[in-house]
Write a protein that binds this DNA or RNA. Structure first.
Length: 248
DNA sequence: TTTACGGCTGACA
DNA sequence: GTGTCAGCCGTAA
């Protein structure tokens, strides 16, 4: 550490008591293996603040400083948050703490809703907007997710377009599909539903409709499965929405 | 304060 | 079925 400001922040005070201000104003940066290749991660005392694909030129740290106005130093051995490596290896594991305090209320709401989408399942942008309390802000949800500070940890790859197609992704659509496949999603089957215009899948024995990727939708036997092109069509047919995936 | 811009959607030709 | 377009809405410049 050569920055004089950082040295002063970490120095003992005149009264002799150590100041632990340093970790509160300076974040830690590290590289870690991710499901799509190496990633760079910035960690603060309250959790992971930023994550991006590795870039040898140092642009990730530069982008972080510019976006959040906070200095970054290399992390030490003990600075890797518990749960980070398993979460990056397998999206279904328990996540490390994530610090979204630099986000706006709307961004935090969108990211929090997104974080609750189960592994291997998809929810539409409009669904996220509704669950975040701003049903009309569908487009804005896309904007927030495009800037997701912690992709993979907040699984924005599990958000799809309303017609069932995958939509765009920070790391590319192919990466989105492969992440979902690794989580157990039937990507080809979901694409087939979307291609057929089927947005919802119901069971004629229960009268319940689900989003096609919902764990309950997968259990409907072929003989009793009925596809719908819209929530309105499903409701008109007397179906109610699944309480797990809440399609409408 | 204003404007432009998106990981979108639904309607309409 | 497939384009196109206007509308929507939070951000950043």
């Amino acid at each position: 550490m050569t920055d004089p400001l950082l040295e002063r922040l970490s120095a003992p005070t005149e009264s002799g008591s150590p100041v632990d201000l340093l970790p509160r104003v300076v974040d830690r940066w590290l590289r870690a293996p991710g499901p799509l290749g190496e990633v760079e991660v910035v960690v603060g005392v309250d959790g992971v603040r930023y994550l991006r694909p590795s870039d040898a030129s140092g642009s990730v740290r530069e982008e972080y400083r510019r976006r959040y106005g906070r200095p970054v130093v290399a992390a030490g051995e003990g600075d890797v948050p518990a749960g980070l490596l398993p979460a990056l290896r397998d999206g279904s594991r328990r996540r490390p703490p994530v610090d979204l305090s630099a986000c706006s209320d709307f961004e935090r709401a969108v990211l929090t809703v997104t974080a609750g989408i189960p592994a291997g399942e998809l929810r539409p942008y409009g669904w996220v907007a509704r669950e975040a309390g701003r049903p009309a802000a569908v487009r804005a949800v896309g904007t927030v997710l495009a800037r997701n500070p912690v992709p993979l940890l907040v699984p924005c790859h599990r958000v799809s377009r309303g017609d069932g197609t995958l939509g765009q992704y920070m790391f590319g659509t192919t990466a989105k599909a492969s992440l979902l496949a690794a989580e157990g999603a039937d990507v080809a089957g979901l694409a087939a539903h979307a291609g057929a215009g089927t947005v919802l899948v119901g069971s004629d024995t229960t009268g319940i409709v689900c989003l096609p990727s919902c764990r309950h939708a997968r259990r409907i036997t072929a003989a009793h499965r009925e596809g719908f092109r819209s929530a309105r069509a499903a409701a008109a047919a007397g179906y109610r929405g699944c309480r797990v995936c809440r399609p409408f």
